[in-house]
């Protein structure tokens, strides 16, 4: 029995900053839902409102039939929350932390061992070590165990993979997939765009606004235009030169290549760029048509909102 969530017109401001600007969305039962966005997008604020740690200025959130403000007691019983900052007791051992949180939820480690088994087994060899001396990845696994110990039906994870090495991140996502099979609705936030593909649906967020909410595949499919990945021997002047080509899209760095977005025919544009760069005496030129990833979509959305915002101002 997992839960569904209905978020309606949530607004939250801290003194002068508007952290959330009218957020509305629904999350289906048993979904692995990702909130993707850079720091300051409002992901943590939204999670803190969901868990009842802070109150929204306006709007309502229902988790199943329960209101997060009025029925916080019921919600706390079925929710597992893992804050972005490691919040367990550094001076208690792995096992002591886990037992303490189990007891606060009126259960025991043994009772729900089945659920945390996959996670806990990875840290069990260090169960007598103090939480403070664990590595980043281990800390996150312990925090996940503690969030799971009371068999929650809703799991809220705030940037669980931030600051964790690539292997641990991969393992962590595998664990989440396993948890999802236990009929738990999972909300996870991350600043890493490439993790979006691992979620059922994602919400792209920026500056307190939702850019879009959809499946990662659909977001990619909806990408307007085409992307050409451009590479040459001198990358720095390349960016400036490409910007001189008239296009209605963006040009930006993307890893080792530059992404050139265009709404024109990609094959023609490909030829145009190649000849333009040859003229400019570049060597090792490569211009390839590629399939966009979430990050490209995010930048396109960002570009769209900033231009419309600039227009509004004018």
């Amino acid at each position: 029995m997992s839960v569904s969530i209905n978020i309606k017109n949530i607004v939250k401001s801290y003194e002068e900053v508007e952290a959330l600007k009218d957020i509305s969305l629904s999350i289906k039962p048993n979904e692995l839902f990702g909130f993707i966005g850079p720091d300051g997008a409002g992901k943590t604020t939204l999670f803190r409102i969901l868990t009842g740690l802070i109150l929204a200025n306006r709007g309502t959130i229902n988790i199943n039939q329960w209101d997060v403000v009025k029925n916080y007691k019921q919600i706390r019983k079925i929710t597992g929350y893992m804050p972005g900052r490691f919040s367990l007791y550094m001076d208690l051992t792995v096992e002591e932390n886990l037992r303490f949180y189990a007891r606060l939820f009126n259960t025991s480690m043994e009772e729900n061992y089945d659920l945390i088994k996959d996670v806990y087994e990875q840290i069990a060899p260090f169960k007598n070590r103090r939480a403070g001396v664990l590595s980043g990845g281990m800390k996150q696994k312990l925090a996940l165990s503690c969030a799971l110990i009371h068999k929650p039906r809703l799991l809220i994870l705030d940037e669980p993979t931030t600051g964790v090495d690539v292997i641990s991140r991969k393992e962590f996502w595998e664990l989440l997939k396993k948890m999802q099979k236990r009929e738990i609705t999972i909300l996870v936030s991350t600043p890493y765009m490439n993790e979006a593909a691992l979620c059922d649906r994602v919400a792209l967020m920026q500056s307190g606004k939702l850019l879009t909410v959809d499946t990662p595949q659909q977001i990619v499919n909806d990408f307007e235009g085409h992307i050409l990945a451009v590479k040459a021997d001198q990358m720095y002047p390349l960016l400036n030169d490409l910007l001189t080509i008239k296009t209605n899209g963006q040009v930006y760095r993307f890893g080792e290549t530059l992404h050139f977005v265009t709404s024109a025919n990609p094959t023609k544009m490909q030829e145009k760029i190649t000849s333009f760069l040859e003229e400019k005496k570049y060597r090792n030129i490569s211009v390839e048509k590629i399939i966009p990833v979430i990050e490209d979509c995010f930048l396109a959305f960002m570009n769209k909102t900033t231009t419309s915002w600039t227009k509004e101002k004018k």
């Binding site: 009842g52 740690l53 706390r76 019983k77 929350y81 900052r85 919040s87 367990l88 939820f105």
Partner: peptide
């Protein structure tokens, strides 16, 4: 200050 209160506050305590 350590943030441990955050984890504690989401329990039914």
């Amino acid at each position: 200050e350590l943030g441990t209160i955050e984890q504690l506050n989401v329990t039914p305590i």
